[in-house]
Simulated scan of single mutants.
Amino acid sequence: MKPDPETALHLLHSLRYGTLATRSIQLPDYPFPTALPFVPDEKHCPVFLLSRLAEHTKNIHTDPRAGFLVADMAEKQVLENPRMTLLGDIATINMSHELQSRFLRYQPEAEQYMALADFAFYRLTPQKIRYIGGFAQMGWLEQPDWENVDVLSLEEETALIQDLLGELPPGVRLLGLDRYGMDMERLGKRERQKFPSTLRSADQIAATVKRLLASL
């Protein structure tokens, strides 16, 4: 079964944390897994804020190849829950103002670390993705599958979020928008609201988000 890229990116957007596995320099060739917060960028690639003193960061600078596991742990039966592993390369990135603002909407606690000199932003660019939707529901996504999804630019997202601030119900924060759905926080809990279809224009996104917010 070849999974739908949209299904995979919806899972990525619904979660706050994952497990990053890098290649250990302390015990060469062994994987070194660690739990980390992340934020998907506008191209649905995980972005991390990492300390250069951390073991996983030292590993990355020796070998950028890594795996990143995200899993829906809402139910107790982990083997029946959606999860996926992204295999790819991690590199430092220069954050635009828009991407930095997006990161802080999703992970506001990161602001205290951004002021420290030893922290920097890194992005995982997937080369291959293993998606498991549940028992006997699994398949691979290739790099072109991920690269070819429709992208909402950061500039468009920033303008849309600014325009929609007045539409937000009490207790709701709008975290991010893309052409497939919106990410929000309601009463402190992360939620992913899927759009009924891929939306091609900013006007379509704005109208759909307003309807979704009005229904909350």
Results as ranks from 00 to 15, higher is better:
residue 96 S to T: 15
residue 5 P to F: 10
residue 187 L to R: 11
residue 62 T to M: 08
residue 78 V to S: 05
residue 208 T to F: 00
residue 105 R to N: 03
residue 7 T to K: 14
residue 173 R to G: 01
residue 128 K to G: 08
residue 136 A to I: 10
residue 33 P to T: 07
residue 139 G to A: 02
residue 25 I to E: 13
residue 197 S to H: 13
residue 178 D to W: 07
residue 65 R to L: 10
residue 193 Q to T: 05
residue 47 V to A: 03
residue 3 P to Q: 06
residue 159 A to S: 12
residue 39 V to F: 04
residue 193 Q to D: 03
residue 110 A to H: 04
residue 207 A to R: 13
residue 167 E to A: 14
residue 143 Q to D: 06
residue 193 Q to I: 14
residue 188 G to A: 00
residue 17 Y to H: 08
residue 138 M to E: 10
residue 207 A to H: 12
residue 206 A to R: 15
residue 20 L to H: 06
residue 49 L to S: 00
residue 175 L to D: 09
residue 138 M to Q: 15
residue 18 G to V: 02
residue 1 M to A: 12
residue 202 A to M: 05
residue 21 A to G: 10
residue 211 R to Q: 15
residue 15 L to P: 05
residue 99 L to N: 13
residue 75 E to I: 06
residue 74 A to S: 15
residue 208 T to R: 11
residue 65 R to E: 13
residue 130 R to A: 10
residue 141 L to N: 07
residue 213 L to N: 03
residue 128 K to L: 12
residue 169 P to I: 01
residue 215 S to E: 14
residue 188 G to F: 01
residue 107 Q to T: 06
residue 204 Q to D: 15
residue 6 E to P: 00
residue 152 L to N: 04
residue 192 R to P: 08
residue 62 T to R: 15
residue 171 G to N: 01
residue 150 D to V: 09
residue 126 P to K: 02
residue 114 M to A: 08
residue 103 F to E: 10
residue 191 E to S: 07
residue 131 Y to A: 08
residue 72 D to N: 11
residue 147 E to F: 00
residue 193 Q to L: 15
residue 145 D to F: 01
residue 205 I to N: 03
residue 74 A to V: 11
residue 133 G to R: 05
residue 63 D to G: 04
residue 21 A to R: 07
residue 68 F to I: 05
residue 138 M to I: 09
residue 214 A to K: 13
residue 12 L to W: 03
residue 48 F to I: 01
residue 19 T to R: 13
residue 108 P to C: 00
residue 118 D to C: 00
residue 157 E to L: 07
residue 65 R to S: 11
residue 86 L to M: 14
residue 199 L to R: 04
residue 176 G to V: 04
residue 132 I to E: 06
residue 197 S to A: 15
residue 143 Q to T: 09
residue 95 M to W: 06
residue 124 L to S: 02
residue 215 S to A: 15
residue 15 L to V: 05
residue 83 R to M: 07
residue 215 S to K: 12
residue 39 V to R: 07
residue 98 E to T: 14
residue 215 S to N: 10
residue 25 I to Y: 00
residue 99 L to F: 06
residue 147 E to C: 05
residue 41 D to F: 10
residue 135 F to H: 08
residue 166 G to V: 05
residue 118 D to E: 14
residue 83 R to F: 10
residue 143 Q to C: 11
residue 42 E to V: 13
residue 9 L to N: 06
residue 86 L to E: 04
residue 104 L to M: 12
residue 101 S to G: 10
residue 135 F to I: 11
residue 199 L to M: 03
residue 132 I to T: 11
residue 200 R to F: 05
residue 110 A to R: 08
residue 160 L to N: 07
residue 214 A to L: 04
residue 24 S to W: 03
residue 55 E to N: 12
residue 38 F to K: 02
residue 166 G to T: 11
residue 59 N to G: 09
residue 170 P to E: 14
residue 111 E to F: 00
residue 144 P to G: 05
residue 14 S to P: 03
residue 78 V to K: 12
residue 98 E to H: 14
residue 70 V to E: 09
